[in-house]
Design a protein around this nucleic acid. Structure first.
Lengths: 202, 202
DNA sequence: CGGAAAAATGTACAGCCGTTGAGTTTTGTT
DNA sequence: AACAAAACTCAACGGCTGTACATTTTTCCG
């Protein structure tokens, strides 16, 4: 009679569980070796699942990659509010701490891949522009707000990259507080100060 | 049975020529798509040579990659001499101009690959430490010279990365002089100023 | 010339990859 | 217990890769 198949029952269906495990395994493997070197077979093994299941749940490797990423890279705690310069330290500290805690985060995945995939590069560019530059620039006064915001992002990114991705010894080995003490003033200077001594007309 | 085969003749043997062409094609392709996505067949096509010749001259893909890289990434013009702070602008300007002129340089290759190959990461780390941090830190006074040098490198790298590798619009589209006007003071601050309260600048 | 060394090519192979479709086991409802 | 749907696994295919070997073409000196 009833052909409607509705099942709530317990908290999580079996399928949901393995789907989640594949997704997590995908994040781990993609994060470690990037898109190209990551194989469906390796992800399946990591998730203790047959390789076919990966396809069954996600259709294609690229789709799995996409879903492994978009679980909001949103940097909720990183939103800039109030005085932009005052939040510089919060911002950079959160960025560094977050990356230290989860080196294989979606962000790392995206970064690793962005250098060899134009599509991933586009995604990353868009994300940085929308989530960071737009928000920061919105609060800035003075000339070239977007460029200054972009530079601030680039500076923070460069530090994070060297410390956590490339692991340059001098940066990776330094205490977080030392890094912040030296780096935060730079961000301050970029965001807070009107850099020109006076308004000059060409 | 074979005597010593010595032939000098003209300035460049035929073999040398194609060997060089393969090397150049390798640099181009590796620089564009990174190690993984680069195929021997594509490199051979780019060099207008049979795929077998690539193997014949370089033995293996990895060996070709190695040779395509090591042609000194040396940044001769980037050496830091004299006042470190004074050379900051020269340094960053040279870095940005160089990269703009040759986006597929060995450095780009190395960077692209360093994110997915531990070996390439090692090479890059070593290069940055030896060529940049060591030299800069040598001229620095005040506390934490190595950390400050590493941070300066990270800052310049971050800007270069966003401008030329990722091409974030706000940074890629800005005039070089604007970027330098905003960025150079940051490097100055890192390299010249003793950040602690102990001493004051003259 | 002529013939040998050097250079360039064509062919083939084994390996790994993503993906497929058919088959088997597990799950949940009646 | 019976049975259908969902979940999972197995075996295989075709495509692309790096590489090895045998062969042909080019170069060059007597």
């Amino acid at each position: 009679m009833t052909d409607v198949i509705e099942q709530a029952g317990n908290g999580e269906r079996k399928g949901e569980r393995t789907r989640r495990r594949i997704l997590e395994a995908g994040r781990r493997v993609f994060g470690e070796v990037g898109y190209d070197r990551a194989t469906i077979r390796a992800i399946a093994a990591e998730a203790q699942v047959d390789k076919s299941s990966v396809i069954q749940y996600f259709g294609t490797k690229e789709q799995l990659f996409r879903e492994a990423l978009d679980l909001r890279i949103n940097v909720d705690a990183l939103t800039v509010e109030g005085d932009p310069a005052a939040s510089a330290e919060r911002y950079l500290r959160a960025m560094l701490e977050r990356w230290a805690a989860a080196p294989d985060s979606p962000m790392a995945v995206l970064l690793r891949t962005s250098l060899t995939s134009e599509e991933a590069a586009d995604l990353l560019r868009r994300h940085i522009t929308a989530e960071a530059i737009d928000r920061i620039a919105f609060h800035l006064e003075g000339p070239d707000p977007r460029l200054r915001a972009a530079l601030a992002g680039a500076v923070m990114f460069g530090i994070t990259f060297h410390r956590h991705l490339l692991r340059t010894p001098d940066l990776a080995g330094a205490p977080l507080d030392d890094v912040l003490r030296l780096a935060v003033p730079l961000i301050h200077e970029l965001l807070a100060s009107p850099p020109a001594t006076a308004t000059q007309e060409p």
